[in-house]
């Protein structure tokens, strides 16, 4: 019998980038995993948590933790949502009656690229045309989850993919969830610099593991009518390695 994993799709992938979510599930399935996607999942609660609305975040998080009863991994195609569940659920649920359940969930959370590399040791075969990409690693994947190098490892396996580095690569793109709305001018200045640095590399595409960054940087590039476009790592990997894709 196939090993089972849960998939937590995240609210942004749900309505904006479902292709990336489908690709992530297909990547897992191709590695022989049976994917379970609880249909009543919604959001990890991070937007409210980061805005100081802890009761509201707790309520939403509480509605999620009951959806993953089996002691199997929970794969999340986003550094920030994974970071929320792994590092902030323990704080959010601290002293609550269901704290133990939240801690158990946190223990089983893996960011997608982390899971593909560390747990599945995937071996990828590149079927795509030559392409130059720049990687933008989300701050939460880098600093909260500590998995920034996994996306590089995966892309490094694709022989037709050339990676180039943008200036100030490790710097935030300026999304920050509600930050982009609450501090629009600062966010705009940050994404302007990020897009300029990415465009400067001459890359054909930028790849990231977080939908928030993708929406921010991609939306700005789109607005600038730039040739450069962005793509979620899951979708990029699937398209390049699957003959049928």
């Amino acid at each position: 019998m196939n090993k089972r994993v849960y998939f937590f799709g995240t609210c942004l992938l749900d309505v904006i980038y479902p292709d990336a979510g489908v690709s992530a599930v297909q990547l897992l399935q191709r590695e022989g995993r049976t994917v379970v996607y609880p249909q009543t999942q919604t959001c990890c609660g991070q937007p409210a948590w980061n805005s100081g609305y802890r009761e509201e975040a707790l309520r939403v998080a509480r509605a999620q933790i009951g959806l993953f009863p089996e002691p199997i991994p929970i794969v999340v195609p986003s550094g920030s949502c994974a970071g929320m569940m792994k590092t902030h659920y323990p704080e959010l649920f601290s002293g609550q009656p269901d704290e133990a359940q939240a801690l158990a969930i946190a223990d089983r959370v893996f960011e997608l690229t982390e899971f593909l590399v560390d747990q599945l040791q995937v071996v990828l075969r590149d079927l795509g045309e030559p392409i130059t990409v720049a990687v933008h690693t989300s701050c939460s994947a880098r600093r909260e989850m500590g998995v920034a190098d996994r996306i590089e490892t995966l892309l490094g396996q694709l022989h037709n993919v050339t990676r180039v580095e943008q200036a100030h690569k490790t710097e935030c793109c300026g999304f920050g969830g509600t930050f982009a709305i609450k501090q629009p001018e600062i966010s705009a200045a940050m994404v302007a610099d990020k897009t300029a640095a990415l465009r400067e590399t001459g890359a054909d595409r930028f790849i990231t593991q977080d939908a928030g960054c993708l929406m921010n940087i991609g939306g700005a590039l789109d607005y600038q009518a730039a040739a450069l476009t962005g793509q979620h790592i899951a979708e990029f990997l699937w398209q390049r390695t699957e003959p049928e894709a």
Partner: peptide, 12 residues
């Protein structure tokens, strides 16, 4: 938001 996102069926 909290109410909607804690009712999975409705949110979907």
């Amino acid at each position: 938001w909290s109410w909607a996102a804690s009712h999975g069926g409705l949110y979907r």
